[in-house]
Amino acid sequence: MSWADRLLFVDRRIIFLFVFVGALVPIIAPIGLGVTVSPPVQQVFDRIEEMQPGDAVMIAFDYGPSDGPELDPMANSILRHCHFRGVKVVGLSLFPLGGVDMAIARMRQLADELGAADGVGWVNLGYKDGAQAPMKAMGENIASVFPTDANGVPYEEIAMLEGLRNYNNFEMAISLATSILGEWWINLVNAQFGIDVAIGTTAVSAPKYYAYMEAKQTLGVIGGMKGASEYEELVERHYPQAKGLSRTATMGMDVQSIVHLVIIFFILFGNLMFIVTRGKKEAK
């Protein structure tokens, strides 16, 4: 086996080690690189910025713990943004594997860091099975599928929800989605009920949503940790009160920079070795 072959078939644990160290170092010693904002994220921010105090937004927490590093910071900054603007947030979840607990945790964080009280600035309606069925039902009457909030308080008894009967009473719906749920918010809820829908999604799903965004089926896409860091940046730029609050996505993007470089190096190096070995084989 030639030296190039040996490098090509190196034990993969050595590659693992490079990735591990590349990720760990910037976490222990953050670098602090800047953030540039892209139009799809700006559009979502601007739409909330246009709203008046007292307007309502529906946020669907359609993701689980494995998407937390990407979608938690999005949720945090959107919740903060709504809080600063005095926009009411109605949270819910249609994703079975942990969505409701992600919603509980994010809203608890909002209450802890900014003092937003349950039932005043936000309400968490909890989780429902059936995905499209509750999506359709909410077009007529939200309480028909969410008779209580996540704490068991009846819908009609929550003062903040007064006048919020169906999608018509909301300015927009935001789905923080992994899997196909975000697409259903677009091709069912937006298509059939006309409410503006914005999508916050994992990086893996982001490319697909561009097709919906360009067809004006969603008004913006916040894609992955990068999108989340952009939203963090926008909120901090416009609201000085946000200074000092956690910005986990922005910190994470430092790490992304380093690990991407490691992986790009491996891709290019792998190809170089491939070309060298192919050249030798052809010569033989």
Partner: peptide, 30 residues
């Protein structure tokens, strides 16, 4: 959920970061 399910699910999926790196090196050829 918070201290058992969450770390387990998140860590299982995070293993993919390592495999995607190793696959990039071995399989991504022009």
């Amino acid at each position: 959920f918070q201290f058992v399910f969450s770390p387990l699910q998140a860590t299982m999926f995070s293993l993919l970061a390592f495999y995607v790196a190793s696959a990039s090196y071995r399989a991504f050829r022009v």
